[in-house]
Simulated assay, not measured.
Amino acid sequence: MPNRFISTIGPEVIHEMNVMMCDTNPNLPLEFLRYALTNCPNLQHFSYKSMNSPDYGIYIGTDPEVISQFVREKKDTSNTIQENIKVIKLKDMKPSNEFLDLMRTYMPATEAFICGLDDFEDQANESFEADLTAFKQLNSVQLSARFLCEKGRDTTFLEIQFLDKNWEYYCLIISDAALSVTKTTLKQMNEQLSGENKMFGKAVIKCLKRVKFALTYYDYHSVFTIIDNGEISTLDGELSFSMSHRFLR
């Protein structure tokens, strides 16, 4: 870090930070991200990539449709992170409460939230929960369905808690490299979860308003299932391929 007694140039001039590490310490991605957010007020892009397994990855940027983690040019934006960052991507990482706190503090203008998964075997056996109610501009959530299923379980229930409308419940079944998504009810979900069959899991996502969800079995080259306004649909191959590029590479 620069000596501020002899130089006024420091991390405040940084608008892009790319980190590649061979250390698999699970705390490192968040520590680098926290440094970038707290010390670089002009930050427009940040990426963290682990070179070993588990392949942790974080990407934040200004364009929700970006398909590359590398920046070609600096955009003319405001000098506050809070207004710059529009897209957040996680790879092989579930959004911890600590990570979500950083999002709320430094990235409240997030429009797209994406979680991709390469290696299911390296994931901790814990349920997926994310409170996204702080993000008023959020309009899309893109997830690998395997992220929502705990290890050893091929069926999970997704509970979407909207603050501005009734909650919605879905049953996700993974089989033969495919994903099946059907609508269900709170009663049906509770009956399955309270039974002796331990093959069922549950994921909970909280949103401020109606948000479009895109779910897929594999992050790349897999058909996407869309949940939008309570309706379930499937994207064709071309649109699914295009959407898959939004996941971290």
Rank of each mutant, 00 (worst) to 15 (best):
A36R: 02
S244H: 00
R34E: 15
F162L: 07
I160T: 10
K94D: 14
N197M: 04
L28E: 03
E191G: 05
D236A: 13
S68N: 07
F70S: 07
R104D: 14
T24Y: 01
E65S: 01
T77M: 11
I114Q: 01
T77I: 08
E111N: 06
R34C: 14
K74V: 15
F241P: 01
G57P: 02
F46S: 05
G195A: 07
F135H: 10
P11S: 12
E121W: 08
K94M: 12
T155N: 08
D164M: 00
L138C: 04
L172V: 11
I9G: 08
N166Q: 09
L172M: 12
R249A: 15
L235E: 13
A109Y: 05
K212Y: 04
M21P: 00
N97Y: 06
T8W: 14
S68L: 05
I81R: 05
L163D: 11
K91F: 00
E111P: 03
H221M: 05
T234M: 13
G61W: 01
E150P: 09
T8F: 06
P11G: 05
P95G: 06
E83G: 04
Q82L: 03
V211S: 13
F147I: 12
K49A: 12
F213R: 07
I58L: 09
R246Q: 11
T80I: 12
H221R: 08
E31C: 09
E65D: 13
T225R: 00
N125G: 06
S140Y: 06
G10E: 13
I88M: 00
F200G: 01
F247N: 02
F120M: 14
P64Y: 12
G237R: 08
R146P: 11
R249D: 14
R246K: 12
R153P: 07
M20D: 15
D118G: 09
Y59G: 01
S7N: 04
T8S: 10
A130I: 02
T182R: 11
L148K: 05
L193W: 04
D131R: 09
G201D: 07
S240A: 15
Y56K: 00
M17T: 11
E98M: 14
I60L: 09
L138R: 00
N139H: 09
N27S: 14
L43K: 00
L239H: 10
L43D: 00
M20P: 02
P95W: 08
F99R: 01
D219R: 02
T155F: 03
I232W: 02
S175T: 02
D122S: 03
M199R: 05
F128W: 04
K165N: 03
M93W: 08
M103L: 05
Y48M: 08
D236T: 13
I173R: 00
K206N: 11
G201I: 03
K89P: 12
Q82K: 14
D154P: 11
D219K: 03
F147Y: 04
S222T: 02
H221S: 10
H245F: 15
L158Q: 08
